[in-house]
């Protein structure tokens, strides 16, 4: 499954990083603790979080994540958008809460 499929399926907003929409999704990771993501997320995963600052994209890039989804209609900081664009890692948004978004992604990846 590609990030673009996820966007279409769950009507996600694409804030930036369109260049990475063809990234293949290998799994998901849910955490708002950055060191936890740094230590435990794996390449190709989609990270679901409520953190909106630019360090999120720094980590997404260092960990080669497929995309980042911001929940509850949270808006990314200006720097976060810029970083997402530079790295070509899609920064996505949803009105869903983390539990609902993660559950839907999990079900989709288990198919």
């Amino acid at each position: 499954m590609k990030v673009s499929d996820l966007v279409e399926k769950f009507d996600l907003k694409v804030f930036s990083g369109e260049n990475g929409l063809q990234n293949e999704i290998k799994g998901g990771y849910v955490s708002d603790l950055l060191s936890d993501v740094m230590g435990n997320a794996a390449e190709g995963e989609v990270w679901i979080t409520l953190q909106t600052h630019q360090n999120v994209m720094a980590i997404a890039s260092l960990k080669d994540l497929a995309a980042v989804i911001l929940v509850k209609d949270l808006q990314p900081d200006e720097d976060t958008l810029k970083h997402s664009k530079e790295e070509g890692i899609p920064l996505l948004g949803t009105s869903m809460e983390t539990f609902d978004m993660a559950g839907r992604l999990y079900r989709e990846l288990e198919k």
């Binding site: 708002d32 603790l33 060191s35 740094m38 230590g39 953190q51 600052h53 360090n55």
Partner: peptide, 12 residues
């Protein structure tokens, strides 16, 4: 609040 400072840095 930024999601840092969870006491995982040095162990990581």
């Amino acid at each position: 609040e930024m999601g840092f400072g969870a006491g995982m840095g040095l162990p990581n």
